[in-house]
Simulated assay, not measured.
Amino acid sequence: MTHSLEVPLLLRAAHGEVLARPPVWMMRQAGRYMQVYRDLRDKYPSFRERSENPDLAIEISLQPWRAFQPDGVIMFSDILTPLPGMGIPFEIIESKGPIIDPAIRTQAQIDALRPLEPEESLPFIKTILQSLRQEVGNKSTVLGFVGAPWTLAAYAIEGKSSKTYSVIKSMAFSEPKILHQFLTKIADAIAIYVRYQIDCGAQVVQIFDSWAGELSPQDYEVFALPYQQRLIQQVKATHPHTPLILYISGSAGILEYMGQSGVDIVSVDWTLDIAQARQRLGKEIKVQGNIDPGVLFGSQSFIRDRIFDTIKKAGNHGHILNLGHGVLVGTPEDNVRFFFETAKQADQLLA
């Protein structure tokens, strides 16, 4: 049996151990707020090249690890990465975001989708995750991540980012049978993809249902939750001990449903007090979060106070300190560094 001190802190938190301090990482900790990333982006302007060329993706994933030593190192990738393997091509255009053309709108398109075979369509994922595990050893936890079925379907059906989600909601409310078939195919493909990431070295996998917060609770229960459950049940059937995290932006109204998804950890956004979130989710569910990314534009004393407040409210077990969303572009790197340093000294400073 591995001694618990050899197990990375984030994994210990994910399994519910009582800890002197919570582990800390940040969503979008690799990326545009870092000068080293912007320099690399100038040299390699294609997002897909940066995320699908293993050497570049490994380098980008490790940039914040080298700078700040977070307790979690997340693979640099995109939630849309597996879609071409199903027969849904996409492009990412700088400052515009993802474009899927043609968008998925018909029964014939859904019938033509193929099952995901990650060894064939996503071989770079294995190289990236294996290399990250080798690089960070037991000093940190390597995280994989995927998009959840509703959010991936929304991208594919809208064809791009959306403020209203009117195309997918139109399908949901007028042709639900077609949408349910599509969501089923996506859930099964993403389950395969999560298992592949774990087999390649991911120790924890975060599931982003970024757009499910746009659903009313009654529609979430029909179009998001059953497909999260379908995906998670398939993963847990083969990899029962790998912790899974679910993140949804704007999730205060659907928090209890997130707890019913089958994940081990619910990542809470900043619109909800984390003590209330713990109360609403119950003792079995661990939490991640939930500092407003805007706090990192504040003074150091303000950042310190928010870190301590969050840690005290979340308690000393089953909490991973994180932001309530990704690091914002323009965030001062020194404040990110201060955030990590303060979080990692929390056991002494809070004593």
Rank of each mutant, 00 (worst) to 15 (best):
L255N: 13
G253V: 00
F47N: 05
A156I: 01
V142M: 10
A153V: 02
P176H: 01
V73N: 13
S61C: 07
A20E: 10
T81N: 11
D101Q: 13
L244I: 05
H317I: 02
T151F: 02
Q206F: 10
V295H: 10
Q288C: 07
Y193G: 09
V287S: 08
L244N: 06
R38H: 06
A108K: 10
K139P: 02
F302S: 06
V263M: 10
L132R: 11
L231D: 14
L129V: 05
Q260F: 05
G97F: 11
V205G: 04
V24F: 12
Q130W: 04
D101M: 04
S301M: 07
S261Y: 03
G31N: 11
N138V: 02
E284Q: 13
D71M: 04
G201H: 03
I320H: 08
F223W: 12
E333K: 00
G289L: 02
L349E: 08
A156P: 02
L349R: 08
I232R: 05
F182A: 13
D292T: 14
L113Y: 13
G213S: 09
E333I: 00
S261E: 02
K126H: 15
E214A: 11
A351K: 12
L122G: 10
Q206I: 11
F47R: 07
N290Q: 11
G201A: 02
A156K: 03
Q279H: 12
N290D: 12
E59F: 07
A30L: 05
G213D: 09
G324A: 07
P70N: 04
S46W: 00
K312N: 09
S77A: 12
V24I: 15
K43I: 00
P89T: 14
Q63L: 03
T242M: 08
I245Y: 10
T81G: 04
S4V: 12
G97R: 08
I190Q: 15
V18H: 09
P217Q: 01
A154N: 02
W25G: 13
I88C: 09
L183D: 15
T184C: 01
D111S: 06
Q130S: 14
L255E: 14
P102M: 03
E52K: 15
V204P: 12
A187S: 15
G262P: 07
P123F: 15
E117S: 07
I178F: 00
I125V: 15
V266F: 09
V73E: 08
L328D: 07
I311S: 13
K177M: 07
V205W: 06
Y33V: 02
T151W: 01
I307P: 07
A212R: 12
A343C: 09
F302D: 03
R12F: 01
I274C: 07
I285C: 00
G213Q: 11
Q197S: 00
K96I: 02
L152C: 13
T127G: 01
P98I: 11
I254C: 02
